Measured scan of single mutants.
Amino acid sequence: CKPMSYEEKRQLSLDINKLPGEKLGRVVHIIQSREPSLKNSNPDEIEIDFETLKPSTLRELERYVTS
């Protein structure tokens, strides 16, 4: 899986911020299912740190927000 450039992460962040509330739950689910360290975090307060997410997680999020 190809790592994301800074610009791609920035765009992904903007795209996620534009999602309606009902789609954000899926974003949280994708992150929690792929990032063991965030599995028990509160979905309402999850802070997405794009620098610490795996490339595969970032690509999955990218696919979701652009679908």
Results as ranks from 00 to 15, higher is better:
residue 41 S to E: 14
residue 53 L to V: 02
residue 23 K to E: 15
residue 60 E to D: 09
residue 49 D to G: 01
residue 26 R to K: 13
residue 15 D to V: 11
residue 19 L to W: 00
residue 42 N to G: 09
residue 7 E to K: 07
residue 58 L to P: 06
residue 39 K to W: 06
residue 25 G to Q: 15
residue 54 K to D: 05
residue 38 L to T: 11
residue 28 V to H: 14
residue 22 E to C: 11
residue 51 E to Y: 03
residue 27 V to P: 00
residue 62 E to M: 02
residue 60 E to P: 03
residue 14 L to C: 10
residue 23 K to T: 13
residue 27 V to N: 02
residue 7 E to H: 06
residue 29 H to G: 11
residue 3 P to C: 00
residue 30 I to H: 06
residue 49 D to E: 11
residue 1 C to T: 08
residue 18 K to D: 05
residue 59 R to V: 04
residue 44 D to I: 08
residue 4 M to K: 03
residue 46 I to T: 12
residue 34 R to Q: 09
residue 38 L to F: 15
residue 48 I to M: 07
residue 11 Q to R: 11
residue 19 L to T: 01
residue 65 V to A: 08
residue 26 R to V: 09
residue 41 S to L: 15
residue 40 N to Y: 13
residue 1 C to D: 15
residue 51 E to L: 02
residue 15 D to G: 11
residue 24 L to M: 14
residue 53 L to C: 06
residue 64 Y to M: 00
residue 65 V to N: 09
residue 16 I to Q: 00
residue 59 R to P: 05
residue 59 R to T: 01
residue 4 M to G: 02
residue 59 R to N: 02
residue 9 K to E: 11
residue 23 K to H: 15
residue 21 G to M: 13
residue 39 K to H: 10
residue 44 D to C: 06
residue 10 R to L: 07
residue 25 G to F: 10
residue 20 P to K: 11
residue 14 L to H: 12
residue 66 T to A: 14
residue 67 S to R: 10
residue 1 C to P: 14
residue 45 E to S: 10
residue 60 E to S: 08
residue 55 P to Q: 06
residue 65 V to S: 06
residue 50 F to K: 02
residue 56 S to Y: 01
residue 38 L to Q: 07
residue 60 E to F: 04
residue 49 D to Y: 00
residue 5 S to C: 02
residue 21 G to Y: 14
residue 5 S to P: 01
residue 66 T to G: 14
residue 44 D to T: 13
residue 24 L to I: 09
residue 35 E to H: 02
residue 16 I to T: 04
residue 22 E to Y: 02
residue 58 L to S: 06
residue 7 E to I: 04
residue 2 K to N: 13
residue 41 S to W: 15
residue 35 E to Y: 07
residue 66 T to K: 15
residue 40 N to W: 13
residue 45 E to H: 15
residue 3 P to H: 03
residue 18 K to S: 10
residue 41 S to R: 14
residue 6 Y to N: 14
residue 17 N to C: 06
residue 47 E to V: 12
residue 6 Y to H: 14
residue 37 S to I: 04
residue 58 L to Y: 06
residue 27 V to R: 02
residue 61 L to F: 03
residue 5 S to I: 01
residue 39 K to L: 09
residue 6 Y to E: 13
residue 9 K to I: 09
residue 21 G to V: 14
residue 32 Q to D: 05
residue 10 R to H: 08
residue 47 E to G: 08
residue 52 T to K: 15
residue 35 E to M: 00
residue 60 E to M: 04
residue 29 H to M: 03
residue 67 S to G: 14
residue 49 D to N: 13
residue 12 L to A: 00
residue 28 V to Q: 15
residue 62 E to A: 08
residue 36 P to Q: 07
residue 67 S to T: 13
residue 57 T to M: 00
residue 16 I to Y: 01
residue 63 R to E: 11
residue 13 S to G: 09
residue 51 E to A: 07
residue 33 S to N: 09
residue 36 P to V: 04
residue 5 S to L: 01
residue 33 S to Q: 09
residue 21 G to T: 15
residue 36 P to Y: 01
residue 17 N to H: 07
residue 21 G to D: 13
residue 32 Q to K: 14
residue 65 V to E: 10
residue 33 S to Y: 10
residue 21 G to E: 14
residue 56 S to A: 09
residue 52 T to A: 12
residue 15 D to C: 13
residue 62 E to Y: 06
residue 62 E to T: 05
residue 52 T to V: 14
residue 9 K to S: 01
residue 3 P to T: 06
residue 7 E to Y: 02
residue 51 E to K: 07
residue 56 S to V: 04
residue 57 T to I: 05
residue 34 R to D: 03
residue 17 N to T: 06
residue 4 M to S: 00
residue 48 I to V: 11
residue 20 P to R: 12
residue 7 E to T: 05
residue 46 I to G: 08
residue 56 S to D: 11
residue 26 R to S: 08
residue 54 K to H: 07
residue 66 T to V: 10
residue 14 L to D: 13
residue 6 Y to L: 12
residue 14 L to N: 12
residue 22 E to I: 04
residue 47 E to C: 10
residue 11 Q to W: 00
residue 32 Q to T: 06
residue 18 K to M: 03
residue 58 L to D: 06
residue 2 K to F: 01
residue 29 H to A: 13
residue 55 P to A: 06
residue 37 S to R: 12
residue 28 V to P: 05
residue 9 K to H: 04
residue 28 V to K: 15
residue 43 P to L: 12
residue 40 N to E: 06
